[in-house]
Simulated scan of single mutants.
Amino acid sequence: MTSALDARQVLRGASLRVTRPRLAVLETVEALPHADTDSIIAAVRQDLPDVSHQTVYDSLRTLTASGLVRKIQPAGSVARYETRVGDNHHHMVCRACGTVVDVDCAVGETVCLTPSDAHGFQIDEAEVVYWGLCPDCRAPSGTASL
C-alpha cells in the first residue's frame, strides 16, 4: 500500500466502509509497523486532531478482524499492529528497549514447529518470538541489562 487511493481500495476489497479514521489508522499502521496503540493514536491525531481513542480502537479491531492488520502481543508487552499479513513470519523482540522486528522464517532444523500431536487440529500457523538484545542495546554505550 503506497497511497490513500490504495488504502481506499484495500478497505473496499475487504468489504469495509471507507471512513477517514479507518484510512488514517490503516495508513499509520503501514507507516509504523509494530506500533502500539498510543503511538497509532498520536500519529492519527496529526491528521485528524479530534479523533477519539475509541474510534482508533474500533478501527484497529475492525481492520484486524477483516485480516488487513495483524495484532501481535509478545509476552509482557502491549499490543502492537502491522499490515504484514498473509504469511507466517515471526518476530524478534529486544528485552531492553522493546524494539520489534520481523523475521521471515525459522531456518535450520525447525522440528519444534511441527507438534508431536496435533490433537485433530488443522494447523495453519506457528508463532515464534525470538528474544534478545538489539544492536543498539548491546553496544558498549548501551545501559541496558538483562
Rank of each mutant, 00 (worst) to 15 (best):
T2S: 14
T2K: 13
A4H: 12
A4M: 11
L5F: 08
D6Y: 09
D6P: 01
D6H: 14
R8M: 14
R8E: 15
R8H: 11
Q9M: 05
Q9S: 07
G13F: 09
G13I: 08
G13Q: 10
G13P: 11
A14V: 05
S15M: 07
L16I: 00
L16C: 00
L16Q: 10
R17S: 11
R17I: 13
R17C: 04
T19F: 04
R20T: 13
R20E: 15
P21V: 15
P21K: 03
R22S: 10
R22D: 06
L23G: 01
L23P: 12
L23F: 03
L23K: 06
L23Y: 08
A24P: 08
A24K: 07
L26W: 08
L26R: 11
E27L: 15
E27F: 00
T28N: 02
L32A: 07
L32Q: 11
P33C: 05
P33Q: 07
H34T: 04
T37K: 09
S39E: 14
S39Y: 00
S39D: 11
A42N: 02
A43K: 08
R45C: 10
L48H: 06
S52T: 15
S52D: 02
Q54C: 00
T55H: 00
T55I: 10
Y57E: 09
D58L: 09
S59Y: 01
T62V: 09
T62R: 11
T64P: 04
L68D: 03
V69K: 03
V69L: 06
V69F: 01
V69E: 06
R70C: 02
R70D: 00
P74V: 12
A75L: 10
G76M: 12
V78P: 05
T83D: 04
R84C: 06
R84Y: 05
R84K: 14
V85R: 02
G86P: 01
D87Q: 12
H89T: 14
H90V: 07
H90T: 07
H90I: 05
H91G: 00
H91K: 04
M92G: 13
V93I: 14
C94I: 09
C94P: 05
A96V: 13
A96M: 01
G98V: 11
G98Q: 05
T99E: 10
V100I: 15
V100Y: 02
V100G: 02
A106R: 11
V107G: 06
E109V: 13
T110M: 10
C112Q: 13
L113V: 01
L113F: 10
P115G: 08
D117K: 06
H119N: 09
G120D: 05
V128L: 15
V128P: 06
P135A: 11
D136W: 09
D136C: 05
D136F: 04
C137R: 01
C137T: 05
A139R: 10
A139G: 08
A139S: 14
P140R: 09
P140V: 07
P140Y: 06
P140K: 08
S141Y: 08
A144T: 04
A144I: 02
A144P: 03
L146Q: 04
L146D: 02
